[in-house]
């Protein structure tokens, strides 16, 4: 009788559980892998700056489209942007097309070969990278805008190890021809640049060592304690050298603080600080942030106090008050993802 009661109880609880979230649905078939997949965004970025001389209004509008083709031997990724810029001072507007990347990848999990125009991200810094040997240097305030890569060929081999201090390693070898837009990365007279990078996950530390034709460098990143990451990098180019030291702290209430000190020797030394509070006052999908950079050599600075909100339909709004060495103003960003 007791067994019968238990059986009935289990049956009842199962019936009670099932169906509770049936109305939420999950059409998983719509997420099946397709031969061609698209994604992208449209972005309107407006800035008003009140300087001591006159007002300045600029806008940078972008339409971005990314395509992935995966069929037979074809594994092609394409990323392109169309820009439209306006400037109230020069009274000029311009539009241009940028092929950010176009790559074909061969290979599998342990070995791959990639050829084409590619964005190569080396280094651990948020605001700057001493190891940007094969990439465009990013704006510390808007690192996401450095989307355009360089033409290159790259081979990569990865290996995981069991019962070892080194948990896994990746060896990357690449070569890039000199073109008119990557000229500054090459030593005088060189028509190509090539390099190798070894990445190790060793004792829970991310470690890279890089040797290129006329440059070399290293970086590392590790968690000192739960929520506190520290990182550093050093790079030597033919005509310059730089290093960066930084940390990223994440609190239990979703406060994130990123701080960095950069010494580029050539362009000076600067501090970078970004404090972000995620979902303040339970205002979900929002962030409030403070961003501050200062060049300690010439005392120039830029600061932003802003808020952004990620809507449920792919729309992201970001508004901020800005203050820099030239003056103060506002910045508004509207971005729609599809």
């Amino acid at each position: 009788m007791i067994y019968l009661f238990n059986f009935a109880l289990i049956l009842f609880s199962s019936v009670a559980y099932s169906g509770e979230y049936d109305d939420l649905g999950f059409d998983v078939e719509s997420f099946e892998k397709k031969t061609i997949e698209f994604k992208g965004y449209a972005r309107i970025d407006y800035t008003f700056l009140d300087t001591s001389v006159r007002d300045k209004q600029t806008s940078l509008n972008e339409f971005n489209l990314q395509t992935d083709i995966d069929k037979y031997v074809f594994d092609i990724h394409n990323d392109l942007s169309i820009y439209y810029k306006t400037d109230s001072i020069t009274k000029e507007s311009s539009s241009h097309f940028v092929l950010n990347s176009l790559t074909q990848t061969f290979g599998e999990e342990r070995f791959s070969l990639e050829v084409g125009k590619k964005v190569e991200r080396w280094g651990k810094g948020y605001s700057y990278n001493s190891l940007a040997f094969f990439e465009r240097q990013k704006d510390p305030i808007f690192p996401e805008l450095a989307r355009e890569g360089f033409w290159m060929g790259e081979a990569q081999m990865t290996k995981s190890l069991a019962d070892s201090a080194i948990k896994n390693y990746t060896l990357t070898v690449l070569g890039a021809p000199r073109t008119k837009d990557n000229d500054y990365l090459f030593s005088e007279g060189a028509q190509s640049n090539y390099g190798a990078k070894i990445y190790l996950l060793i004792w829970d530390i991310d470690f890279d060592l890089i040797v290129a034709k006329d440059s070399y460098g290293t970086d590392l990143s590790l968690n000192l304690v739960e929520g506190l990451e520290v990182h550093g990098e050093y790079g030597k180019l033919p005509n310059s050298e730089s290093y960066l030291l930084g940390f990223r702290y994440q609190s239990i209430i979703d406060t994130t603080i990123v701080g960095e000190y950069v010494d580029t020797h050539q362009d000076g030394r600067f501090h970078y600080l970004k404090v972000t509070q995620k979902e303040p006052f339970n205002w979900v999908y929002s962030n409030v942030y403070l961003l501050y950079t200062k060049n300690t050599d010439d005392d120039s600075y830029r600061s932003f106090l802003g808020v952004n909100y990620d809507f449920k339909n792919g729309l992201v709004l970001d508004g901020s008050l800005l203050k820099n060495t030239q003056g103060k103003g506002i910045k508004a960003l509207v971005q729609y993802f599809f």
Binding site: N100, E144, L201, D204, D206, L222, N223, E226, R248, Q250
Partner: peptide, 22 residues
């Protein structure tokens, strides 16, 4: 991987270390 966590955001940066409580 055990206690190590990373987040990769395409186009923006290399993978960033993240924490478990976030």
């Amino acid at each position: 991987l055990v206690d190590n966590m990373w987040l990769y955001i395409p186009g923006v940066a290399k993978p960033l270390r993240i924490s478990s409580m976030q």
